[in-house]
Nucleic acid binder design. Structure first.
Lengths: 349, 349
DNA sequence: TTGAAAGCGCTAACAG
DNA sequence: CTGTTAGCGCTTTCAA
């Protein structure tokens, strides 16, 4: 048996089993396995496993020795083997709640990439899977049953998705946006972002401020709207809110509605930069000058915002995604957490 | 033994082994395994495996039966188990050659996300790993040794990385950009993009066209430069080329150099949109009007290009990434392939 | 508290 | 061409 013949001090055995001589390169084998660590520490594989994972009783002394051995040997548990036996999975999925199959937008891309960077050192990967908004249960059940998935990060979460989340996914699912009793959530402080923009506009003399909201089916957009209402009301200003979305077209339509309903509007707060760009275009078409007649403030601080001198608030997408992924890795039992959004004053407001 | 007791027609055994009663939900087990397929087809697991993977001799009739059984049972091979035994890995890594650890840019994000979408249905994931430009060998060797990595997509590939690619990675590595005898490559047709922009500029009356190049350490930027030189020379125009990069600052510096060296320049071709934006800013600072005095054409067609009315050429990043990932999955033996880049005429040129 | 042993689902050598 | 057998590296029972 190869394992018997293995010298304890040889982390990379010279004898290559024949089945590795084929298509798979010999050096694709792990340099150091649990067996090596166990031998170095003078214990069994089982004990070494317990010491390393904390999944059972081990004496403190043994644990110390095993950990030291693992450290010196540079041992990293093979996620593949671990996943096979424990069913913990080798990848984390970003589940995007969406009606359209074309789920690729800059926001999702940033979430996925941040996740990929966090997970790569752990030997894990990320995937993207669309979840139909109307009937999410089918896809969610399939994910729960899929041995390769270790956890889920929910994007564009709705109440329905939260309600229909299979029990098997609880404890390894984290939402970006709204959460529930069983699903912790992380999000940007959209309420603060709304408040800060209103405060800035009021400070600079605006008195008739309108908001173009995000898509109403998306629960995480409700908080900023509520915060906007509260902020303008506190300032003694009229509450002007029109429904919108996240696209430039929504911004153009929203701005048109605003101008039709309240022609004296002197500032527009948009749900995101894209919507602000649409509003900007509509404003110019209507003959209004920005920021002369109407000030415009966006949200996200995308690269184009700097280019077009759009006043906006930041959106730390990478921080949020990283935190969500870490939370999944850590058992998804943290509380809701909001990440700060800062005002970036440029020419448009 | 559980396997013996398993009725052939019960794809999801009712008896749950005790070790699945813990933290791992029972339904995380695969509904139907190779064993079920084999029994249904009346053959051994080994034969079923051969029939399904094509990795050995099987009679056509047996193969047909096994495939039919797999089909009706809805069998999908567990990538985890497959990876464990075959060493084929459970994830694909996007290896970004870069000096800075901050490898996150929109381009990489699009590549990673496209990859994640292609790989998710296969039960595989993606990861991102930075590769130091100066001494890539260490990281590359580690990747070759890592059992969890199934393949590599190289981004920002240099000759040195290609030369130092471990043998174990050959056959499962594809480059986006330049390739080599052992590493197939896919890329955008940057040469065509350069030529098309020059032709458009010449058609619209420009006669003194300068190019701001990409980073010179990046081999895939050389082709567009060569194409630019050839195109202006063919048109009987002076060849004006200054070194640049991919950032707005490179564009600003490049434009300043161009104006200092050839003040009568009437058009600038940029290595990418970001550089074009920088050039635009520098041009305006110098009092030149765009497109009146100087036309500017970019490359990539990022969202901001539409917003700022920048004439540019498209960059089908998702198509390229998808094709690279598929090529890795298929054994990385395809030829070099260029994806077309189309001219998008807007106000700036 | 520890070790021996079983086995996750699959592939590949080997003998028939 | 097929079945038997032996594991991949790890976790988890179970008995000591």
């Amino acid at each position: 048996m190869r394992r018997e013949a293995l010298p304890p001090d040889d982390p990379a055995p010279a004898v290559v089993p024949p089945w590795y001589d084929g298509s798979v390169p010999a050096d694709a084998r792990p340099a150091v396995t649990l067996e090596h660590v166990a031998r170095a520490a003078g214990v069994s594989r089982a004990t070494a496993s317990r010491a390393l994972t904390g999944g059972g009783p081990v004496s403190t002394e043994t644990q110390r020795q095993v950990r030291a051995a693992a450290e010196t040997l540079g041992y990293v548990a093979d996620p593949v083997a671990r996943a096979l036996v424990s069913g913990r999975g080798t990848r984390l999925l970003v589940a995007v709640v969406s009606d359209s199959p074309d789920v690729l937008c800059w926001y999702l891309a940033r979430v996925v990439t941040a996740g990929a960077q966090v997970l790569a050192p752990e030997g894990l990967g990320v995937g993207v899977v669309p979840v139909p908004r109307q009937r999410p249960a089918g896809v969610l059940d399939a994910l729960a049953r899929d041995r390769t998935v270790g956890g889920i990060v929910l994007v564009n979460t709705t109440e329905q998705v939260l309600a229909e989340l299979p029990r098997g996914l609880v404890g390894r699912t984290v939402s970006i946006g709204v959460g529930s009793a069983t699903v912790p959530a992380v999000d940007v402080d959209g309420a603060g972002a709304a408040r800060r923009r209103v405060e800035h506009l009021v400070r600079s003399g605006r008195r008739r401020i309108a908001m173009i909201t995000g898509p109403s089916w998306l629960p995480c957009t409700h908080r900023p709207v509520a915060a906007f209402r509260a902020a303008v009301r506190e300032a003694g200003l009229p509450v002007r809110v029109v429904p919108g979305g996240f696209c430039a077209a929504d911004g153009a339509a929203g701005a048109a509605t605003v101008l039709a309903r309240w022609p004296d509007t002197d500032a527009i707060v948009a749900s995101c930069d894209e919507v602000a760009f649409g509003a900007l275009a509509a404003l110019r078409r209507s003959g209004r000058s920005v920021p002369g007649d109407v000030a415009v403030a966006g949200f996200d601080d995308v690269p184009a915002a700097e280019l077009t001198e759009l006043t906006t608030t930041t959106h730390p997408v990478e921080d949020i995604a990283t935190s969500a992924v870490r939370a999944v890795l850590d058992g998804a039992r943290d509380e809701l957490r909001y990440f700060p959004s800062e005002l970036v004053v440029r020419a448009s407001a």
